[in-house]
């Protein structure tokens, strides 16, 4: 169980790091949202699931799983609201072809 927890935590760290790297490396606002929105969701979910596994099954791990559930619901909505606001204020997406 402890090994499984470590595996989940390492996965979480990996995806969060990749998300941070993606935010730096991608060319414009929308593509950066891709990295932040998806990488963070899975990264945080994996980390917290790892912590819950490490703790064994009790009230604390149940609460942790609720946090995961809320992140799954809330993170896409946040990403969607940000991209929608950017689109409405007229930020043009980068297409790689130049202006």
């Amino acid at each position: 169980m402890r090994i499984l927890a470590i595996f989940f935590l390492m996965g979480g760290f990996f995806f969060t790091t990749v998300a941070a790297l993606g935010v730096i490396r991608f060319p414009d606002f929308y593509t950066r949202l891709h990295a932040a929105g998806k990488g963070d969701t899975l990264g945080i979910a994996l980390s917290i699931t790892g912590l819950a596994l490490y703790h064994g099954f009790n009230l604390v791990s149940l609460k942790l799983m609720f946090i995961v559930f809320f992140i799954f619901l809330a993170n896409p909505i946040g990403t969607h609201v940000l991209s929608g606001a950017a689109y409405k204020t007229g930020i043009r997406p980068w297409t790689g072809k130049g202006e």
Binding site: F14, V18, L21, F26, W94
Partner: peptide, 24 residues
């Protein structure tokens, strides 16, 4: 699907050429 999506995005981020073609 979420796990697959993340692996895809991670591969794109770590790829030096970054083969993306964003579009709306």
């Amino acid at each position: 699907e979420l796990v697959k999506a993340n692996v895809d995005v991670a591969l794109l981020v770590l790829n030096p050429q970054m083969p993306i073609s964003p579009q709306i």
